[in-house]
């Protein structure tokens, strides 16, 4: 039974980050490959402050500030770089954050990770984590659905389909990008508040590129931009990922098997949806 609760907890902790990232990468068609970098900054900020001050309020506040600053930086980059250059730059941002965390031993303990992550008092069992994560997920589903159907959602979609046409209507690209990246950052923060507490351990290996591949697979498989589609694919792919643990494979083989499996899923979905995944920009 605990395994079921574990799957619910893991799935519901993934949902806020996946849905919020979907707003930028899926609906906005912005080639943002740095969501795990944002999550990394949020997780370390929250955990380090929680351990050093003992205050979750202070930890959440610092996590929020760090996420807002990084999201604003990414939005600024997205407004100044071409799509391709922005994609490469976000990979570089992720890599740089990872390098800092792995090497700033005095603050982050580097590759050793941070054990003994303190928990909110009400998160004492797997069930309580599952319930808390489910509540947070539900709030994100409702919020992202409302955003999707709002004027902001339409403006983001219009910019994704044709930037010039959208701007000629008076749509402010700067404002739309800033909001989209901030929402994506909040999703990363929600997951960052729960995930390290659940494991009681924070390790940089949990923020490597395979996790980016996992998130991109979720969005591509769920139909980019679709709230319910990405919700469903998050549930199915997280369950699939966890169910692989039942295969009689050593832990050394399990990681590569997962990567290959998600690579195959992504390959298949991109092939079948090649015409609709990313709309062609029409020239003026």
């Amino acid at each position: 039974m605990d395994f079921i609760w574990h799957i619910i907890a893991i799935t519901c902790m993934t949902i806020p980050h996946a849905l919020a990232y979907n707003l930028v990468f899926g609906k906005g068609k912005i080639l943002h490959f740095g969501p795990i970098g944002v999550s990394l900054v949020a997780s370390y900020a929250v955990v380090i402050i929680a351990i050093s001050t003992g205050s979750f309020i202070a930890a959440t506040l610092v996590g929020l500030i760090s996420v807002v600053l990084l999201s604003l930086f990414l939005a600024w980059l997205s407004l100044r770089l071409d799509q391709d250059a922005f994609g490469v730059m976000t990979i570089a941002v992720h890599l740089s954050i990872l390098a800092v965390i792995l090497n700033w031993n005095g603050l982050t303990r580097g590759a050793l990770g941070i054990p003994g992550v303190p928990r909110f008092s009400f998160l004492s069992s797997v069930q309580s984590f599952a319930i808390a994560a489910a509540v947070v997920s539900l709030l994100f589903v409702i919020a992202l659905r409302l955003i999707d159907r709002s004027s902001f959602g339409r403006q983001l979609q219009a910019l994704a389909e044709h930037e010039w046409h959208a701007k000629s209507l008076g749509i402010n690209r700067t404002k739309v990008h800033v909001i989209a990246f901030l929402v994506a950052g909040l999703g990363a923060l929600a997951t960052a508040l729960l995930f390290p507490q659940y494991l009681a351990f924070l390790h940089p290996n949990d923020y490597q590129y395979p996790f980016l591949v996992f998130f991109i697979t979720i969005i591509v498989a769920g139909n980019p931009g679709s709230v319910y589609g990405v919700l469903l694919s998050t549930i199915l792919l997280t369950v699939l990922k966890e169910a692989l643990r039942f295969l009689p494979l050593s832990s050394a083989v399990m990681g590569p098997v997962r990567l290959i499996l998600f690579g195959i899923i992504m390959l298949a979905v991109v092939y079948w949806r090649r015409d609709t995944l990313f709309p062609k920009q029409r020239s003026i």
Partner: peptide, 26 residues
């Protein structure tokens, strides 16, 4: 207001959304 040579409408949006998105940008 600009009308483009190559149809400045958003093909993945509904007709209603195409008009609404312009009005909401005012």
């Amino acid at each position: 207001g600009r009308v483009f040579q190559n149809f400045g409408i958003f093909r993945d949006m509904t007709l209603e959304e195409n008009i609404l998105v312009a009005l909401e940008a005012l």
